[in-house]
């Protein structure tokens, strides 16, 4: 099953490689990983998406918790939570396809953030599934370039990490 794991860790050089190293050394799978500093600049927050059965996820959480730099680990999927991912994509347009492309952008609530004669750069935030659906709405030739941030997440309004 897919799990979203939130990790609060010391904002120190090498902390990221400890986490990445742990996953490769123990053969755990990483679907995506995002990291940035928090409002407390001495701490970073990392969001990891991994796939595994309950036993593997339990081990991932425990092994992360064991890292000396890690302050807290929460499996977001175990509670109410919100997840989002950001997509930046370059989509080619021609006079024939422009109307259709724009309709699709509207349908997904994607935003055009830059445009040239034959290309739009668009931005879309949402759950991973929405991003997948959006991308599959276009032909392969229409998509010139794609960059996804990977999932980030927070606990629901009633919870606190």
């Amino acid at each position: 099953m897919r799990h979203i794991i939130s990790v609060i860790l010391e904002n120190e050089a090498g902390a990221l490689s400890r986490v990445a190293g742990l996953f490769s050394a123990r053969g755990f799978n990483i679907e995506s990983l995002t990291v940035a500093a928090t409002t407390d600049s001495t701490l970073s927050r990392m969001t990891i998406v991994s796939v595994g059965d309950d036993g593997i996820i339990e081990q991932i959480v425990k092994q992360l918790d064991k890292l000396i730099d890690v302050v807290k680990v929460v499996d977001l999927t175990a509670t109410e939570h919100i997840e989002r991912e950001l997509l930046l994509a370059k989509i080619s347009i021609t006079s024939d396809t422009q109307v259709d492309v724009e309709a699709k952008l509207d349908q997904f609530n994607a935003k055009i953030i830059d445009a040239a004669e034959e290309v739009y750069i668009v931005e879309l935030a949402g759950k991973s599934q929405k991003i997948k659906d959006f991308l599959s709405a276009f032909n392969a030739e229409q998509i010139i370039e794609v960059s996804r941030t990977g999932v980030t997440g927070v606990t629901g309004v009633c919870h606190k990490i």
């Binding site: 036993g55 339990e58 081990q59 425990k62 092994q63 918790d65 064991k66």
Partner: peptide, 11 residues
């Protein structure tokens, strides 16, 4: 003493 050892190999 190490929680990660619990239920690693044997539940």
């Amino acid at each position: 003493i190490d929680p990660s050892q619990i239920s690693k190999n044997v539940i």
